[in-house]
Amino acid sequence: MDKNDFLELANTDVKKCMKCGKCSARCPSFDEMDIKPHQFVSYLAEGKIDKLLVSKSIWTCLSCLACVERCPRGVAPQSVIEAIRDTVTRKAGANGLSAEDIPPILDDDVPQQLLVAAYRKYNK
């Protein structure tokens, strides 16, 4: 996945950021973050995806949306964090499910939809 994939996934216009830092100013998890909310926006804009993918911040972000609420430019830093978190989550289960794994776990109680969703998520 490249920068454009993440821009699409985050669905927020990082170029609108005027680097005021209001997102980080109110973040309740600021001290627990190695990469701060405003940096998520600028790192994505600069294409430094690798750094974001190993950030601990994605696990300390509370998704309280204070950053989104406060941003004067209509940027959503939390959406960037979420895009990274989702990606990491899916990658963690990489090849966790192959086609052969499915028949043994099939039974009448498992909804078809669940299998389709799981396959989509974990077979990357």
Binding site: G21, A25, H38, Q39
Partner: peptide, 26 residues
């Protein structure tokens, strides 16, 4: 940096919470 919140405190003062971007601190 920018201020995220101003809290009126019990002692009558105002607690200003903001970011210092050059030092990457809150």
């Amino acid at each position: 940096g920018m201020v995220g919140k101003v809290f009126p405190m019990a002692n009558g003062k105002l607690l200003v919470q903001g970011s210092n971007l050059l030092d990457n601190e809150q």
